[in-house]
């Protein structure tokens, strides 16, 4: 079922918020205002924004690298995201995990894991809980993570157990600077679903409506008890990590080509369909601007942690 006009505008606003967030993160990193390891999801915004309109608030979300977009799309604490990037005490993990360990369990979102592929096993564990609680799991990772053994182990286990999990692959064709033709056998990741007797599909991962339609279909089947499904979204990431920005041009405007930029593409689509008007667009962009400004102010007002903060929080039950 196609999203309503209101839902589409919501997806568009989420995509813009992700884009704005990630660009600001890159800008502040370059200026040296924030530091650490960060993995932008620039170019992949359609996937988190579309999925967030498909899964329910009660469902669980588990991602690996490049989870920042999913964190934002899920509606996790946005102010705490910026405090985290600034390494402040009001960060969502008190400034400990940084951008690659974003997690907001008030939203059932483990949207960071820095060991590529480990999210598959963790998501599968969440699947056992989801089965018991009557909800489902959305598990996300790049195509690079599907070459880890744990991907196979997890999908096999989930299929045998008929766990309610939607496995989503963000196929951006890059593992560092390696491309799939050098590293990955087979044309598509989705065909691996056949091996587990589960349904799989590849969609254009820069096309909001294509992602939304297939994800909604799979989610409905999973809720009906089909067991896990595998959705491959073919996209492109604009850059690897903030410390390796060589492939991100100084002028991001250059990236805004309709077949390459999911945000511009969706904006164009919404305008053609008469869903997005100039005044609505201005209002949405103002919403995003204000949200970012508010979060930046919040982050900068938050104290830096004491250097010994957390050394007594290694165990939840000290002995």
């Amino acid at each position: 079922m196609q999203p309503t006009s209101g839902e589409m505008l919501g997806i568009y606003e989420t995509m813009l918020l992700i884009r704005t967030t990630e660009l600001k993160m890159v800008e502040l990193f370059k200026k040296g205002e924030i530091e650490g390891h960060m993995l932008p999801c620039l170019g992949q915004e359609a996937i988190p924004a579309s999925l967030a309109k498909v899964y329910a608030d009660t469902d669980y979300l588990v991602t690996g690298h490049r989870g920042g977009g999913h964190y934002v799309a899920r509606g996790c604490d946005y102010n705490a995201l910026w405090a985290e990037l600034y390494g402040r005490v009001d960060g969502v993990t008190k400034g400990r995990g940084g951008q690659i360990h974003l997690m907001d369990m008030t939203k059932k979102a483990m949207t960071g894991n820095a060991v590529v592929g480990q999210q598959w096993g963790i998501a599968t564990g969440a699947g056992f809980v989801a089965r018991k609680r009557g909800v489902m799991v959305v598990a996300v990772g790049g195509e690079g993570s599907t070459n880890r053994g744990v991907f196979h182990e997890s999908l096999n286990m989930a299929a045998v157990q008929k766990l309610p999990i939607l496995y989503v692959i963000e196929y951006n064709d890059r593992q560092m600077w390696n491309v799939c033709s050098e590293t990955t056998a087979g044309e598509r990741i989705a065909t691996r679903a056949l091996a587990y007797g589960m349904e799989g599909a590849s969609v254009d991962g820069n096309d909001v409506l294509a992602i939304h339609a297939k994800a909604a279909e799979f989610v409905r089947k999973i809720r009906e008890g089909s067991g896990p499904c595998l959705l491959e979204c073919i996209t492109a990431k604009w850059t690897d990590s903030v410390s390796n920005l060589r492939n991100l041009p100084e002028n991001v405007e250059a990236m805004k080509k309709p077949d390459f930029d999911p945000v511009l593409r969706f904006e164009t689509r919404l305008r053609i369909d008469g869903v997005l008007t100039d005044s609505l667009d201005l209002q949405i962009k103002e919403n995003v601007r204000q949200k970012l400004q508010g979060a930046l102010s919040f982050a900068l007002a938050s104290p830096v942690p004491d250097r010994y903060d957390g050394i007594d929080e290694v165990y939840s039950q000290p002995v």
């Binding site: 669980y60 483990m110 480990q118 096993g121 564990g125 969440a126 056992f128």
Partner: peptide
């Protein structure tokens, strides 16, 4: 991984 995920959730 299942242990970690099930415990976390």
């Amino acid at each position: 991984g299942v242990a970690v995920g099930a415990a976390a959730f």
